Computed example of a mutant assay.
Amino acid sequence: MKMKLSGIGLFCVVLFCSLESAAQKKAGFHTVSLNNLGEFDPATSNWKLAKSVFFSPDTDEKRFEPGVGIVLALPVKPDTGHLFTRMQHGDIELEFDFAVAKQSNSGVYLQGRYEVQIFDSWGVATPAFYDCGGIYQRWNESRVSKKGFEGKVPAQNACKAPGTWQHFKIVFQSPRFDKKGQKTANAKFIKVQLNDVVIHENVEVTGPTRSAAFEDERPTGPLMFQGDHGPVAIRNIRYTLLQQK
């Protein structure tokens, strides 16, 4: 039996499909539990679980309350290891909150290879690739000059004061390979938002950035949070693994 849809009926169908699609996308997100470190590889002692953290915006003062919900890096040599997820990802949409101590430095590496910088860049008028939200440069020790190359400056400085919770949203496309394992397309940051400001769109990365955990390139790899440069707190990590087009 054929049925004609009125304007209202058609609107309801479109609305239902939109809501269904949104629900499917929402259901696809996985929230990383920070009740323990079970979703990560074994961590060095510089990584701790906390209920709350405090970083002074003006001094080196920092403190935390042990508990759950926040993972905190307090690097002290020789314990300066990084934090790796057990999850391996290709294309991914990632979100998390972070807070840094004054003048602190960290980063999130997609697939453990391609870094988006986490840094105290509060008040920087003209940001560089190493400022917060920058896509870090690559490095080649064998180059005669300009051993550091590429890197991408954020479109603007969207960084908040140290000690303030901030938010990253990153859509990343993994490098592509043919059946013989030869790379056919570079990794790409489709979009990076810092505190709801779009700071990158469609930025290709030709290889692993400096201080990556792995120097090769593969279809998948873990998320890595850098833990050797300074205090950083991370919470509300969630992601969805995207299907390759």
Rank of each mutant, 00 (worst) to 15 (best):
M1C: 10
K4V: 14
K4W: 05
G7Q: 09
G9W: 01
L10D: 02
C12I: 10
L15V: 06
L19A: 14
E20V: 11
S21N: 05
A22M: 05
G28N: 15
G28M: 11
H30K: 14
E39T: 08
T44I: 14
A50H: 12
S52V: 04
F54H: 15
P57M: 06
P66D: 06
I70S: 13
A73E: 06
V76W: 06
L83V: 15
T85A: 03
R86E: 05
H89S: 11
G90K: 04
E93F: 09
N105Y: 06
Q111K: 05
I118F: 12
A125W: 09
A125I: 10
R138S: 13
R143A: 07
G151A: 01
A158T: 00
K160V: 07
Q166R: 11
H167W: 03
F168M: 11
Q173F: 01
Q173M: 03
P175Y: 02
F177K: 03
K180G: 06
G181K: 05
A187T: 03
A187D: 04
D196N: 08
V197F: 08
H200W: 02
E201Q: 10
G207T: 08
P208T: 09
T209C: 03
D216S: 15
P222C: 11
V232I: 14
A233H: 12
Y239N: 10
Q243R: 02
Q244Y: 00
K245L: 01
